[in-house]
């Protein structure tokens, strides 16, 4: 088991209970997808996993160790986040952005080799290396953000809405890249509003609804689940079906 999350509870202020008793697991080598509507708590989950948000209760075990909510400890343990809306540093060059991803590493030679790996995934970045990140197109920015996440050589890559705001053709490319990264041996936890595509490439998936995990199964199972289809796949022939969990919270 690469990552085990047990009974995670996260609050915003006193009143807003953003994640309620969330438990799930990520296995080595898989693409795990979490789908859910806006405000379901997907991004909250990602920022909690990386250690930036402090859970009120619950346990996060990664590679056998209990993680404290301290980002630099979590990153050096082998997790990396590609955040929603990319969050590049527009005032830094592409190279500097990538090097920020490798901040905790001291092995210069290996970092150089990893750059080659990045260029094999995204050849265009080699030409843009000295350009300011703020001047790139949306698709290229998503590439840099993904590459920046990979530069720390993570065991587990957290990807938050990588298809957001991208044209359909680029969306397809992003999902192909995710599969390629997975084939190269990095485990991926993918959070997406594009439920259909993310379920299609996921080995397993969870459905998050108002802070609760309400469904789980293989990507294919959820893809064929009428309730999931009604709520998330836009192909609603079953209006009356409402997704409800087994009252976990």
């Amino acid at each position: 088991m690469l990552l085990r999350v047990e009974d995670l509870n996260v609050y915003y202020g006193e009143a807003v209970h953003a994640l309620r008793n969330v438990s799930f697991e990520v296995q080595e080598g898989e693409i795990l997808s979490i789908i859910g509507a806006n405000g379901a708590g997907k991004s909250t989950l990602m920022w909690t996993l990386i250690g930036q948000l402090k859970p009120r209760s619950g346990k996060i075990t990664f590679r056998g160790e209990v993680m404290k909510p301290v980002p630099h400890a979590v990153v050096s343990a082998g997790m990396a986040l590609v955040p929603e809306r990319r969050r590049l540093f527009p005032n830094l060059t592409v190279r500097e952005n990538l090097m920020m991803g490798a901040y905790l590493r001291g092995d210069r030679g290996a970092v150089q080799k990893d750059l080659e790996y990045i260029f094999s995934l995204f050849p265009i970045l080699k030409e843009r290396l000295n350009q300011y990140a703020g001047t790139l197109s949306g698709g290229q920015q998503q590439m840099v953000a993904t590459a920046r996440g990979l530069m720390s050589r993570p065991k587990l890559l957290l990807m938050d809405e990588p298809s957001l705001g991208l044209a359909p053709i680029l969306v397809n490319q992003i999902f192909e890249t995710i599969q390629e990264i997975s084939r190269q041996g990095t485990t991926i936890l993918l959070v997406e509003q594009n439920a259909k595509k993310s379920l299609a490439i996921a080995h397993r998936a969870y459905v998050l609804e108002v802070g609760c995990i309400v469904r789980t199964g293989t990507g294919q199972e959820l893809l064929n689940d009428p309730a999931v289809q009604a709520a998330y796949l836009g192909v609603s022939q079953h209006k009356e079906v409402i997704l409800e969990g087994k009252e976990p919270c």
Partner: peptide, 23 residues
Amino acid sequence: TKVGTAIRAASYDSEMVSVLGVN
């Protein structure tokens, strides 16, 4: 320098810098 780059990065988005592993 690495630290200098991180300072410049943090001037734009310190939360993201933190999430990349910078203390």
